[in-house]
Design a binder for these strands. Structure first.
Lengths: 152, 152
DNA sequence: CTAATTTCAGTTTAACTGATATCA
DNA sequence: CTGATATCAGTTTAACTGAAATTA
């Protein structure tokens, strides 16, 4: 229904715009594939962070995953309702919830990690293995060079 | 104020996530530089599209720039109030507005194009000219490969 | 008293949808 | 009558902000 015309050539070669388009396509692909099993990107991120660092408070999970503390509440509500994580009050500090993965959560993470890996493969299909590696290196270089702009 | 901790290594190598981060950094940089002169990305996009195709209706501008017809109204309101474009009713089809650039608009576009070009340069600083070219080619390849998924 | 944590309610912004008036 | 256009009002979604209740 939404028809589109030719875009100005001057716009079609601007790197920040190409990045934006590629990022949107990749993000949409990953979200779509995750949505097929009822998962949100946040769910994969939280479960992966839990696996990497073990049981953590919500605040710790927020800081490590860059998911806002407020969104973390909603994300954990869903993961808990689905039986993938458990909330227990930290006996050593009753302000904290200790979030830990259940067996179902560990299984779910295997499933979601597979889906995400397949989506990466699907997205990078036109590139050779060497090109994929070089592409990631360039992105890491750019991120490292600019991620320090607004810290401290 | 927002402290962050180490991210799970499993997340730090996922291409779609690297793309998202790089895209966000580049987009923020461009937006910030444009905001320094009171401009929005849409303003640059619309003026560039006008220069490439000449005077156009709002609907045509929307289709060519991928800016929603609804957002186009607001964007042109601002550009018109600043004297960068003119709206005149098309005498051949009174539903249409013909949007054309003023001399001030052409001057503004030179300014904004310079700002955007400088921002690209700033963002790509860690890359050589050859690497920049290769990077753009990869992005174009990925976009071309996936932009056909949801058409017709 | 200050500071951290969890939670909820609400804000912001970009992108989009629906409806209306006008005209082809 | 159908379809395109410009406009406005409102929705959606992700990311974020502010404040309250609890505890250190």
């Amino acid at each position: 229904m939404t028809e589109h015309g030719d875009t100005a050539p001057e716009l079609e070669t601007i790197p920040s715009r190409l990045l934006g388009q590629a990022s949107a396509l990749a993000g949409q692909l990953v979200s779509d594939r995750l949505a097929d099993t009822g998962a949100h990107r946040y769910h994969f991120t939280v479960l992966t962070t839990l696996k990497a660092f073990g049981p953590s408070s919500q605040a710790e999970l927020s800081r490590r995953s860059w998911i806002d503390r407020s969104d973390m509440v909603a994300t954990l509500n869903t993961l808990e309702a689905d039986g993938y994580v458990e909330r227990t009050v930290d006996p050593a500090d009753k302000r904290r919830n200790i979030i830990s993965m259940t067996d179902a959560g560990r299984l779910r993470l295997v499933e979601l990690a597979g889906i995400v890996a397949n989506a990466q493969d699907e997205f990078l299909q036109p590139l050779s293995a060497a090109e994929r590696w070089a592409f990631s290196q360039v992105l890491l270089t750019l991120i490292a060079h600019h991620a320090h702009t607004d810290e401290d």
